[in-house]
């Protein structure tokens, strides 16, 4: 394996392996196209070095997610402080008494005119966007629960909702986030890829 130096430092692998390791890194995050997934799978079966990299990425990703930061020494900034900051941006404008007087006069005139014309002031606020529904998954086959910590966020949501449907993109991604050594070969059907 050739070593290659970039402006970010030395990357260990070069050539084909480097490309596949980059793919493996994206695959762990569920950010891979189907065609790439197929060639990656073929490569991983024959390359223990890249398989080791993929497993390392899974393991360290889990450790990173599970490490809590040190406890806060102070209380977070309070809303009233932020409210002052939020109001502060226009303070210079409002300091001008003349402008304040003009604004008050305009408001009074507007209210009088509005009531004369029979208009109503106010209304309902903008409705909050509806929550996205959980992905609907149908029961097909079960998965070893010990894989669950390795799943990326969307896959974890799909897992929580039930069982990943076979033949879908989710399942293909799932294959790539599951350590090869622990994957049940019986469930793997290459024609789906």
């Amino acid at each position: 394996m050739r070593k290659k130096t970039t402006r970010y430092g030395k990357t260990r692998a070069a050539g084909d392996c480097r490309a596949f390791r980059e793919l493996a890194s994206s695959a762990v995050d569920g950010e891979i196209h189907e065609l790439e997934a197929y060639s990656l799978e073929r490569h991983l079966r024959s390359c223990p070095c890249c398989r080791e990299f993929r497993d390392f990425v899974l393991r360290t990703g889990l450790l990173v997610r599970q490490s809590p930061p040190p406890p806060l020494a102070r209380r977070p900034v309070e809303g009233r402080v932020l409210a002052r900051a939020a109001g502060g941006r226009d303070r210079s404008w409002w300091k001008s008494r003349r402008l304040l007087g003009v604004a008050a006069g305009s408001l009074a005139a507007g209210i009088l005119l509005g009531s004369a014309l029979g208009l109503r002031v106010g209304g309902e606020g903008v409705a909050a966007p509806a929550e996205l529904p959980l992905p609907r998954v149908t029961a097909a086959r079960t998965l070893d629960p010990s894989y669950v910590p390795y799943l990326s966020r969307p896959l974890a949501v799909a897992w929580d909702a039930g069982v990943i449907r076979p033949g879908t993109a989710d399942e293909k991604r799932l294959f790539w986030v599951t350590p090869m050594s622990r994957y049940d070969e019986a469930h793997y059907r290459p024609e789906r890829l």
């Binding site: 977070p76 900034v77 309070e78 809303g79 009233r80 932020l82 409210a83 002052r84 939020a86 109001g87 606020g125 903008v126 409705a127 909050a128 966007p129």
Partner: peptide, 20 residues
């Protein structure tokens, strides 16, 4: 939501607290 953000922009302390 857009409404919550508008309230935060208007200096609504409770909303800013929620965001924090």
């Amino acid at each position: 939501s857009a409404d919550e953000l508008r309230r935060a922009a208007a200096g609504d302390e409770r909303m800013l607290d929620n965001l924090v």
